[in-house]
Simulated assay, not measured.
Amino acid sequence: MKKKISFSAQGQRADIGEMIIYRILPNRYADAVGPFVFLDHFAPIKDSPDQSRTKQGTGAHPHRGIATLTYVLKGEGEHFDSQGNHAKVYSGGIQWMKAGNGILHDERAIPDTQTGDPYMHGFQFWINLPSQVKKENPEYLTVDANEVPIANLEDNRGWLKVIVGQYKNLVSKIPTYTKQFLYHIQVNAGKTVSFPAEKGMEYAIFLPQHHATVNNTSFHAGDFIAFDTQEGTIEITNAPDTAADILLFGGEPYTEPIVAHGPFVMNSLLEIAEAYQDFHANKYGKINYQAEEHKNN
């Protein structure tokens, strides 16, 4: 039996400088899917020669209580933070940062200097942490494109990359604290793929650039599709003209209180107030851009 679709929605524009961004989650229907409380889609843009590197960065800003995950579909992502981490990933790579009890970070996007591809395209998720993990020290991890587990789907239907979690015997390097998954699926032209869904788990699909039919319902590029929590099957049928990229993600429901404000996701209003107090007291540290760039050169 196919899973019932609960609702679908389109993202809202939330641009940063020259970057075209669609905020997919939260939306007017849902605040979270499993532990995922935030999804920004950095729509594909072609680099402009007169665009300054500063404008392509988010600027130093704090986080607490979550892990951020940036998946660079195309381009080059550069990360700095107040724990002394500085790294780059290229097209197909992942950056994961556990904000834990507080950190400052900055991310910059430029075209992929390894391939020369002028386009930039990607996603950022916020993954809510259990209350005990919110108290832990920050951590940072990069996963290069060649380290992302990938499986070819049978009968030349396409492929699946495991960004977070596990698919059959493939396990992502990204740490998890609850049962969760994030798959990048490419469905070949005219093909159909299906995935079993566990009862009690939360599931959602995002269609970044292509139309597709999901459980017999047609959806458009940019659609976010959520399902009920009953057991069933998720079936995706692609149009006959080109391969389609699809994000399938979710996990077990987050059962603790969720209080989100700005860059902080905590379990109470008091903890939100403490997060701001610690930030204004400079307890998250400072990013030393020159030292970090020198250290990694």
Results as ranks from 00 to 15, higher is better:
T113W: 10
I21W: 01
R157D: 12
T242Q: 13
Y29P: 06
T242Y: 10
S52C: 07
V37T: 11
H210Q: 13
A151Q: 15
S52Y: 10
A87C: 04
F206M: 09
Q10A: 13
D117P: 11
I45P: 02
V72T: 10
L69C: 03
Y71E: 02
G285T: 00
P35T: 06
I110S: 14
L153Q: 09
V193E: 11
G84D: 01
A260V: 05
P118N: 05
T255H: 10
S194N: 13
I20K: 11
W126P: 02
W96R: 01
D50H: 05
A273G: 14
Y284M: 00
N267T: 15
R157P: 05
Y29M: 11
A189L: 12
S8C: 12
M19D: 05
I45C: 06
T70N: 03
P130T: 12
V265S: 07
E107H: 04
H41C: 11
T115M: 14
N288A: 12
K98V: 02
Q132K: 15
I127Q: 04
F42H: 02
K4I: 10
L25E: 05
E147M: 12
G92V: 04
T68S: 03
L270G: 14
H61G: 00
A243I: 02
E231M: 07
P35M: 07
A32G: 09
K135A: 05
L207F: 09
A9Y: 06
I16D: 03
E231Q: 14
Q56I: 07
P240L: 09
V164A: 04
I150G: 07
S172Y: 10
L73A: 08
Q12H: 09
S194V: 10
T176E: 03
A291G: 03
W159T: 08
L39H: 10
S131T: 15
E202W: 08
K135S: 05
F36C: 04
L270M: 14
G102I: 00
T237K: 10
R23L: 02
I163V: 11
H261R: 08
M120L: 13
Y254V: 11
V187A: 07
T229S: 08
K46H: 12
P26L: 06
